[in-house]
Every structure is written in C-alpha cells, then in structure tokens.
Amino acid sequence: MFLGTYAPKLDEKGRVILPAKFRDELSTGIVMTRGQEHCLYVFSAREFEDLHDKIRQAPVTSKQARDYLRVFLSGASSETPDKQNRVGIPANLRAYAGLERDLTVIGAGSRVEIWDSSAWETYLTEQEATFANTTEEVIPGLF
C-alpha cells in the first residue's frame, strides 16, 4: 500500500527518483498514465494488470466507458526504474500534468500520484475544507 507525501525534483532528463518507501513494490516495473485532476497515476505492473482485467469488462457499447478508456490507456507508459531508482516520465505525460522541477508524490493506496507541487498545493487547499466538513458517508462502510 502506498502512503505519504514526498517532494522529489524532476531532473533535466525528465526523471524522478522514487520515494524509498515505494521502491520495493515498484522495482519490477511500473505503468504510469494520465490521472484525473491533471496528475499522473503510477501503478505497479501487477496492480495495473489487475486494473486492466477490470477495464476489459467495460461494455464496448458504452460511449462513456470507451471515452474514458481511450484517454486513460492511450497515455499509459510502461517504465522500469534504473539502478538509482529513477524513472523517466515521458514528455507527453509531463506536459499533461504540467510537471516542472518541483514535484509532489503522494501515496494513494493502490497507486502513486505525481503532481506539480503548486498544482498539488492548490488542490489540497481547495479540498481540505470539504474533507474536514464531510458529514455523510462518502465511501460505503468507511465510517
């Protein structure tokens, strides 16, 4: 499970060093793709295979499912961390997420998210009040 918040830098070659706590699970390979809210989603290869099995079950007759799958999968890139635990972020994904030098990498349970640091701060500021004031069940069975 991926947890926590980290602040690595993007190097001049478009690579990021994976947080130490994430390395074991991601060392055999990752799949990164467009995430919602203009961040990147990073999955272990195993987790992405499980996700893909679920995705394949979406009805081809659903336009919403087709549209979502096209955007989600067309941006996917399989990467393998190097010996220094760096992983390259393809240019199209860097552009999609507006990634510059300062990054915020968060653990989001089954995936890692990579954000431009200023975009993350804006998002977090906007969402904290809603989070603090939630009075009804958002995730069934959680509280």
Rank of each mutant, 00 (worst) to 15 (best):
Q57L: 12
L40S: 01
R86M: 02
D67S: 14
R94E: 02
Y96G: 00
K83M: 11
R86G: 04
Y96P: 01
I139T: 11
H38R: 13
I114Q: 03
T135N: 09
Y41A: 01
Y6E: 03
Q127H: 13
G14I: 03
Y68G: 04
D50P: 06
R70P: 06
S110W: 10
R86D: 05
A129G: 14
G14M: 08
Y96K: 00
T135H: 13
G4W: 10
G98L: 06
P19H: 06
V60L: 13
S27M: 15
R66C: 06
G88D: 09
E25M: 09
G4L: 04
E12V: 05
T104V: 13
E47Y: 02
A119I: 01
L3C: 12
A65W: 00
Y123F: 12
Y6R: 02
I55T: 01
P59W: 08
V87T: 08
E37T: 06
G35A: 04
S118F: 09
G14D: 08
A76L: 05
S44Q: 08
S110R: 11
V138S: 12
L26W: 00
A108W: 07
N133D: 14
I139P: 03
L26P: 01
G75Q: 00
S27P: 08
Q57G: 09
R15Q: 02
S118P: 08
R15F: 04
A76H: 05
T61Y: 14
R94D: 02
S118C: 13
D82C: 04
S77A: 11
S110K: 12
A97F: 01
G75C: 03
D50K: 14
L93W: 02
A45K: 09
T130D: 09
E126S: 08
Q57D: 09
D67V: 15
A76Y: 02
Q64H: 13
S62E: 05
N133F: 12
V112I: 04
P8S: 01
A7D: 10
L73E: 05
A65K: 10
K9S: 15
E79L: 08
V16E: 14
R101M: 08
T135V: 15
G35L: 00
K63M: 13
R46I: 14
Y41V: 01
P19L: 04
L93H: 07
Q127G: 11
Y6V: 08
E37Y: 08
G14Y: 10
S74C: 10
G29I: 07
V71P: 04
